[in-house]
Nucleic acid binder design. Structure first.
Lengths: 244, 244
DNA sequence: GTTATCATGTTGTCTATACCAATTATAAAA
DNA sequence: TTTTATAATTGGTATAGACAACATGATAAC
C-alpha cells in the first residue's frame, strides 16, 4: 500500500481515500473482500482513527465501500455496464397490447405508520395504522416491477390479502370503498437494485433500475395510496408524450 | 430549537440531524439562510464539536445543507422538480419555477446526417446535412444537463452559434423560423455517466443519471428536432402528473 | 479616499482517548 | 461432540482540544 505524505497540503483523510480508491481500481482490493480495519490503517499510516474513519466514510457515502459492525469494511460490487434495449411500451399499455399481466402478492401487513407516511396521509395519531402491501408485477411470465403500496387502514377497514387476490387494487378501491383515483404525482430516479430486489425481478444484482414514488389523490384531493415501485429497464422502455 | 436527549439510545448526532431537518421542514430555517454555527450547536445541546459536525455533514451529504469555509453553513434550496407533462423548453420551464437558467454552447457543427437521423427527419439525400449542437444546461449556477440537439440544416438555413447565444432554442425556432413545437415523444432510462459527461456535469464519474431521447414534432407532425440529454439526478427530481 | 493590516469568527483538519455494540474466535463446560 | 461462556476484534459514538484556512469587518497607514 502506498503511504500517506504527512507534510503534504492535501488532507490526510483525502490522501487515504485516494489510496483506497486506487487499490480498488487496481483490484488489490476485490469486491466483497474486507479492506484493512480502521485500527490497521492508523498503524500503517501513523494517523488517528478519526482521520482513517473520515476517508472510509467518504467512500461509504459514495457507495464504494460498505461496513458491517463487528465484521469489517468491504469493497462494494462493481457497477454494471449499461446495455441498450429494444423499444417497448409501458405498464398500462401492456394488456391493451395483448400481454398477460399477473400480480403476485408477496406480503400483506398491518403496521404502524412511520412519520413520513403519517404526514402524507394526514394522520394525526402517533399509532395510526396502515396496510403495507408488497406486490410483484409479472408480464408474460416475466417479473418486471416490484411494488410496495401503503394504504390508510382506518379508511379502508376490512382490506385483506384475499380481497386483493386476482383483482386490481384500483378495482377494489372503486367498488368496495367508493374511492375514485383522480390524479397522481409521480417522481422517478435511477437506482441500483439491491440483491433482494434483483432476485425477485430475476436480474443480476446491482442492475440499473428506475424507482418511482407515486402519491395518488382521490376526488377531494385526499391521498388514497402511496406507492414505491422498482421497474427493471432491460426489457422495457419508458415513454412520455408531451403536448403543448 | 428542540433539545437533544442525552440518555436516549438514539445517537446524539442523529438526534441533532433530525432536529435540523425538522427546523428546515418547518421553515424555521429558510433556504440560503445560515444555520447556527457548529460551536453554537455545541453550546445549545451540550455536545462536542465533532458530534455537531457529524450531524451537519450527514445533511450536507444529502444535499440539505451546504457549507462555505469561513462563512457558515446554509440551508440548500428545495430540489427543483422538472415536470414532464407539458411541452415547454427546459429553459422556460425552470425559469417559470424561479430558477436562473444558463446555457453554455459547447459545440456547434454542421455534419452529414447519419442514417438514423436521416430516417428520423425524413431526409432522402445521402449527403443531407444536419446541425449538431452540444449544450450544457446550468440551473442556479450548477450544471444540470448535457444536451445534444440535431436539427435539419436544410430547413433551418442560417442557424448559427451566435443566433442561439443567450436565447432559448424554442424561441429561435418560433421567431426566426416560424416553427411551433406541438408534441414530443420522449423515452428515458437510467445510465451510468461516462467520465466525460461526469466531468462536464461536475459529478463523480460513474454517477447515476437519466438519459432522455426526445423527438419533437411540429404542427404538421414533421420532426423539428431530435435531442439526446443526460440529466444529473443528485440535485433535481423528475416529476410527472397523471390525471384520469 | 484608498489600501494594508489585524482581530475575530467561521469551517476544515487532526490528534488522542474512551467507552459502547455487534460479531467472531476461543476456551471451558456439559 | 456439542453447547455455553468468555475474550478479542471490529465498527459506532462521543469528548476536548489544537491549529490551519478562509471570510469579513474594523482599524491603521498611506
Amino acid at each position: 500500500m502506498r503511504k500517506i505524505i504527512k507534510n503534504s497540503p492535501v488532507p490526510l483523510y483525502y490522501q487515504l481515500k485516494e489510496i483506497l480508491q486506487e487499490m480498488i481500481d487496481n483490484e488489490e482490493l476485490k469486491p466483497n473482500e474486507p479492506i484493512p480495519t480502521e485500527r490497521e490503517l492508523c498503524e500503517i499510516h501513523g494517523i488517528s482513527r478519526m482521520t482513517a474513519r473520515e476517508a472510509i466514510m467518504a467512500l461509504v457515502n459514495e457507495g464504494v465501500l460498505y461496513r458491517e459492525q463487528g465484521r469489517g469494511t468491504f469493497v462494494a460490487g462493481p457497477k454494471p455496464k449499461y446495455r441498450l434495449t429494444e423499444l417497448r411500451g409501458m405498464t398500462e399499455d401492456m394488456e391493451r397490447m395483448g400481454h398477460r399481466v399477473e400480480t403476485e402478492i408477496l406480503s400483506f401487513a398491518t403496521a404502524q405508520a412511520t412519520k413520513t407516511i403519517r404526514s402524507l396521509f394526514g394522520l394525526e395519531q402517533d399509532d395510526a395504522l396502515v396496510y403495507r402491501i408488497e406486490r410483484l408485477r409479472i408480464v408474460d411470465g416475466e417479473p418486471y416491477a416490484l411494488e410496495t403500496v401503503w394504504l390508510d387502514a382506518e379508511r379502508l377497514k376490512g382490506m385483506s390479502r384475499e380481497r386483493l387476490e386476482g383483482r386490481s387494487l384500483y378495482d377494489v378501491l372503486r367498488r368496495d370503498y367508493s374511492l375514485q383515483p383522480r390524479s397522481a404525482r409521480q417522481t422517478f430516479e435511477p437506482v441500483i437494485m439491491s440483491d433482494y430486489e434483483a432476485s425477485l425481478l430475476r436480474v443480476d444484482p446491482g442492475s440499473l433500475a428506475l424507482l418511482f414514488h407515486q402519491t395518488t389523490y382521490g376526488e377531494s384531493e385526499e391521498v388514497i395510496e402511496y406507492v414505491k415501485s422498482i421497474y427493471r429497464v432491460d426489457r422495457y422502455k419508458f415513454e412520455i408524450f408531451l403536448k403543448s
